[in-house]
Nucleic acid binder design. Structure first.
Lengths: 154, 154
DNA sequence: ATAAGTGCAAATCGTTTGCACACTT
DNA sequence: AAGTGTGCAAACGATTTGCACTTAT
């Protein structure tokens, strides 16, 4: 399902939350971005559009949206948080470009389900949740890097 | 490969690092534990054996061991760090009990490789790394919880 | 002997909280 | 009008840094 600003607003009202200009600004920034963003980055971008938003409100809005499942927390190699808008409902995973932060959502194809089933059988654990994140280089950054290499050959 | 205190000591010396009692204590705590431990927990346990270790040294030692690949950083649902000793070399994943922190290492069976291959084909990204963590309930905690449920039925 | 490693205290970073005011409903 | 949501300043907790002292090599 494609998430829109209207849809987010609808879901907020549905749950009794108010639709404020700050929340709108945060949602706007997240939805237009195909990159993982830190609270700080979201704050700065939102500030450019709604000059009186505060960082604290960004945090609070992110918590709310995360709890509603409209936004997902991402982690870099070193554990730092980032956020990205997310298709609500289904469990999805993220492929993040380590160079520019570009994000692609994907489902587990079915491989994941197999793996988790094997894992349960082997360990006796009951699996309740999982978390897969993949890092890579997006086509654009790959190209850029190849050009850089060519430069330095001279 | 099974990691031992001797093996860690050897690898430290090999790289020109010194084997100190603080480092020994941290390694000892990590190796004997089948649970994910926070720096604070490691500090407390190590303190019980080497009364003059400091929390700062635990952090520094964990950084070193992580960088050497002998210890892996884990993350809880909310992104908090924990550490566990790890088979060096191979890429492995972790199944963590959300109740008691018990950790089981596993490889990706092959499902992961399949998945990453499909992902590369579909997105044009080059995948450089990935990170899978699974959460569940270990057999012991499952049992405990079942007993708890029986209690409350009365 | 010497340079790496350590502990302490203080600095720092990201995040959270308390409170009076502002804005959505 | 009522009460949710906001911004600010201050609090907070985890992690890092500066520095003089200690210890493994």
């Amino acid at each position: 399902m494609e998430l829109t600003e209207q849809e987010v607003a609808r879901r907020l009202r549905e749950r009794g939350y108010r639709v404020t200009s700050s929340r709108r600004a945060v949602v706007h920034v997240l939805l237009r971005s195909a990159h993982r963003l830190t609270p700080q980055e979201i704050y700065e971008q939102a500030k450019a559009e709604d000059s009186k938003i505060g960082l604290v409100t960004v945090y609070r809005t992110l918590d709310l949206l995360t709890e509603m499942g409209l936004v997902k927390r991402l982690h870099g190699r070193e554990g730092c948080h980032g956020y990205a808008a997310s298709a609500p409902g289904e469990h999805r995973h993220y492929l993040v470009c380590t160079e520019c932060g570009a994000v692609v959502e994907f489902d587990g194809y079915g491989e994941i389900e197999n793996l988790l089933k094997k894992l349960e059988a082997e360990t006796g654990f009951v699996v309740t949740d999982h978390w897969l994140q993949v890092f890579g280089l997006c086509p654009a950054c790959r190209l850029k890097r190849r050009e850089g290499a060519r430069e330095s050959e001279r």
